[in-house]
Amino acid sequence: MVEEAKKWEIIRKSREERPKIQSWTSYWDLPPASLSFPIKGCAGHTGDWRTFKPVINQDECIKCYHCYMYCPEGTVLIDDESGIVSFDYDYCKGCGICAEMCPKKCIEMQREV
């Protein structure tokens, strides 16, 4: 129980110090209400769910960032300086919403396997 309290302390402190995977094992460990602490990748590398991957044609991209706005997983990356769009393939699960929303249709879903 003491260890549990310690873990609780860490969770309360900061995003960085949180354990990568938060799990409670029994009634006696549980907090009073349902909680989760979002950290990057807490559900594992969702990139391996993918069968089609988005590939962008940088020549046609007008940097409207519709893909960035609509991505449900936050895996569209924008370069801070150049503003160029790329994808985080570790976590992109290949849903294809970016390709559908792109007004220039310059994102192509390429077959992976």
């Binding site: 309360r12 907090p31 009073p32 989760s36």
Partner: peptide
């Protein structure tokens, strides 16, 4: 103790709980 609003320490509460997860336990709590 169990809930707060702080953008530096984001948390989520009231999310979906599957039957095999701790819903029953929270009610008993």
């Amino acid at each position: 103790e169990h809930v707060w609003i702080d953008s530096e320490r984001p948390m989520m509460t009231g999310a979906l709980i599957m039957p095999q997860s701790f819903y029953a336990e929270f009610r008993i709590k």
